[in-house]
Design a protein around this nucleic acid. Structure first.
Lengths: 202, 202
DNA sequence: CTATTTTATGACTGATCGTCCATAAATACC
DNA sequence: GGTATTTATGGACGATCAGTCATAAAATAG
């Protein structure tokens, strides 16, 4: 495939990734049902027809947004978890990241978590993309906790699969609270307590 | 205040609590933004004006729903946590309840969690009621974990406040996944693992 | 050049939204 | 009886929704 291939028709005058990023912000803060085309138009500066040409209708656009966000966020977290250094330290780094996200001044929480809470409300068909991202996230945690056990940092009598789902659920729980904010500020305490609960006793 | 007091005007022909219960179901499954008056009318069999007379506009109605749900659910959980028997057993009972809720075939998750994920999206003003319910829930868990420590069932070096927020966040996390369903079925495993992580070593 | 294909943009569609008006009905007070 | 007050209900309100049409513009192909 040659990227210099001539393409028929008038070329697109906007950057697709830029537009998707701006669209993501709108869905993130207003949810799927709460997002309107006028809002998307003012956020992107584009005509709704341009968005439809590029991404399809509202539901398809939302699926693209979920996929885009999941690749970025889950991919980033998985990279940290599977990165160099001790596995438990990588988990700690992810928790630190999540603690900041849950307390971000924008108070938008996590787009994936918000989307999950809206799933099944009719029209939202991003269930597959959300589920795939969650599976990827859990698997990355399973690898990290398994390695952490091999490194002797995590108690060997705990199941890495269970630990992984605990970590994800704990994070998602605080992400939900990140929208209203009175509980979210204790996320760091809860994360570090979890780490000390699963650590090998001295 | 005498409940036999004669009230001026035409008496209400429907049961307020019944209507609120049916309205709750609609908001629960479709969210705030996804709920329309036609949907509320068919669910209750009432004219929208009757709902407005009784509860106010859509936002006020949603606040009533949140308050109603929070009183029932959080009140029930607090009653279990502060009930007779060992405190840790009561916590276990609540976790069992939550495990069933997260895996309920209706796949609606928790109304409070869904509402939190939608908070700040404009128009939703139930933030105070949600926050109050969360505080009540956390306080009930704090009392339970404190008692459990006094009963020698929970490691004394863990902070009950932190444990309470961990329990709530863990529950909320699985409630979110209760909408899509691929993670929620492991809620029981995660809850019982949490209990074994915080239990006093033999 | 013309023909074809794709994008850009303004205007419009029917449907649906939350809210409100107007009238009838049902009760209490006089 | 009549008056006042509240609820019940059909209908209409302007606004907004997601989606579509129609025309212009910008590119390639021949």
């Amino acid at each position: 495939m040659n990227s210099d291939d001539k393409i028929l028709g008038r070329p697109r005058s906007f950057d697709e990734a830029d537009a998707l990023e701006k669209v993501t912000q709108v869905f993130w803060s207003h949810g799927y049902a709460g997002t309107s085309y006028p809002a998307l138009e003012t956020a992107t500066g584009l005509h709704r027809q341009s968005l439809r040409y590029a991404f399809g209708d509202k539901a398809a656009l939302f699926e693209r947004v979920i996929g885009h966000y999941a690749n970025r966020k889950v991919g980033g977290v998985a990279a940290i978890l599977n990165g160099p250094g001790f596995a438990l330290g990588n988990v700690k780094a992810v928790f630190a990241l999540w603690g900041r996200d849950a307390n971000h001044p924008s108070r938008h929480g996590c787009l994936m978590v918000n989307a999950m809470a809206e799933l099944g409300s009719g029209g939202v068909v991003a269930e597959k993309a959300v589920d795939r991202a969650n599976q990827t996230l859990v698997e990355a945690f399973v690898r990290a906790f398994t390695t952490a056990q091999e490194e002797g940092a995590v108690r060997a009598d705990f199941n890495p699969q269970v630990l992984a789902r605990q970590a994800v659920a704990l994070g998602d729980g605080f992400m939900v609270h990140g929208r209203s904010g009175s509980i979210a500020k204790f996320a760091d305490d809860a994360f570090s307590a979890f780490l000390s609960q699963i650590a090998t006793p001295p």
